[in-house]
Nucleic acid binder design. Structure first.
Lengths: 219, 219
DNA sequence: TACACTATGTGCAAGTTTGCACTCAGGGCA
DNA sequence: TGCCCTGAGTGCAAACTTGCACATAGTGTA
């Protein structure tokens, strides 16, 4: 709200009060993403048009296409939301800690349970709809790159993790693969039940998958 | 910033779905007007800046000045709201009915009690603040013109009320004067108390004032 | 008085959204 | 098959919002 354009901020980090313009854009993007997930819930994947999303989000059809290449792609925003929510937890881990620990701890603490729920919901929807599956794969991949960059930015160049160029990408890829495995198994077991109990089970599966990863798969 | 507000239609609204552009503008205008009345409540008249209103409404300071010439003037929107709410009631009166009756009946039925409350609240604020008083006078005057036009549009050219060019303007002016008298007396009696009981009293005063008018002041 | 500070109000350029007119692809139907 | 309709996706100009610079006015202060 406060638009103090003066850059006299004590905090140096990323909390540099975004401009009105940026806020408006994010609000629109969010509105469209929310409208899209609402529509996919009420009508099912593939049963809503770009017009529907735009109208529900309160923007024009043209504006929708300024942001997203297709109605389904708007859902990918929620996957990025998940990341935006987890990254601060990651950044808060002690700097000396091994990267793999920081990452798994951050993911385990999972900021907002509602985000896990939405992620699980989208994962489930992707199973039934090839269109959505493709977009989601793309979103997960973008997420991997984003995390790799975030880790590289944070890591001390002398950190063992940066001694080998494969280390971080392999780690991130492994974490994502483990998460996907957990989601997949959860889906197989529960059929996508989104009740708190079921989601709790998903959380357990995630932790178990991360456990395998952490121990180097020495079962 | 965009809220899908329920556009509380009092009676009939043969509204042709306005364009996205028009909807956005109205949403912004409404947001600023609401922010302004919220600020005048929390900080008092004259104790808030254009920046405050803009920020609270989610628009830039510049946009605020695109709509309103001053922080106070944003409040005038609420007076026009009152009209927009009453006019449909007026249009619904039987066409044969004398205009004075249609008008007083419509005002008496008073669509949304919350609107009467806001109008009374603003009336009260204007007493204390000359700046606001001026803007409000202007708003009431604009409202008079608007109503005169609305009546002329609706009236059969053969209607007695249009036989003399002074008739409608004099009528509308008298109605407004009576309403102001009622508001003024209400304010004197209650000090601007906005409780339901007090507002009910205001309603009685309005009806009484209209009664005088209706009878040609033959007490 | 001179100065700093805050807030109003406006002009202008750049960024964003919108309306509209397309093109293209796919499905239903005579 | 050919036609019609719906929806995706795009280019472009016009409308709207925003950031910024600037002029102006009022207020407190040394």
């Amino acid at each position: 709200m406060t638009t103090r354009s003066s850059d006299t901020e004590g905090v140096t980090a990323e909390s540099v009060a975004p401009s009105r313009r940026e806020m408006n854009k994010q609000a629109n993007r969010r509105a469209m993403a929310d409208a899209a997930i609402e529509l996919v819930r009420s009508r099912g994947a593939g049963n809503f048009t770009a017009d529907d999303v735009a109208a529900a989000a309160g923007v024009s059809r043209r504006t929708f296409f300024n942001y997203f290449p297709s109605p389904e792609s708007a859902l990918a925003v929620h996957i990025e939301d998940f990341l935006d929510n987890v990254l601060p937890y990651f950044h808060q881990r002690p700097t000396g800690e091994p990267v793999v620990e920081s990452m798994l701890q951050a993911l385990t603490e999972l900021a907002d349970p509602a985000l896990l729920e939405r992620t699980a919901e989208l994962f489930q929807l992707a199973e039934d709809n090839p269109q959505m599956h493709r977009f989601q794969l793309e979103a997960w991949t973008r997420a991997e790159y984003k995390i790799v960059d975030a880790i590289d930015d944070r890591l001390d160049p002398a950190d063992p993790a940066r001694q080998h160029p494969l280390f971080v990408p392999a780690l991130v890829g492994s974490v994502f693969a483990s998460a996907r495995a957990a989601l997949s198994e959860w889906l197989r077991r529960t059929g996508g039940d989104l009740s708190p109990a079921s989601l709790s089970g998903l959380r357990e599966l995630l932790i178990a998958a991360f456990g395998h990863l952490r121990s180097g798969f020495h079962n």
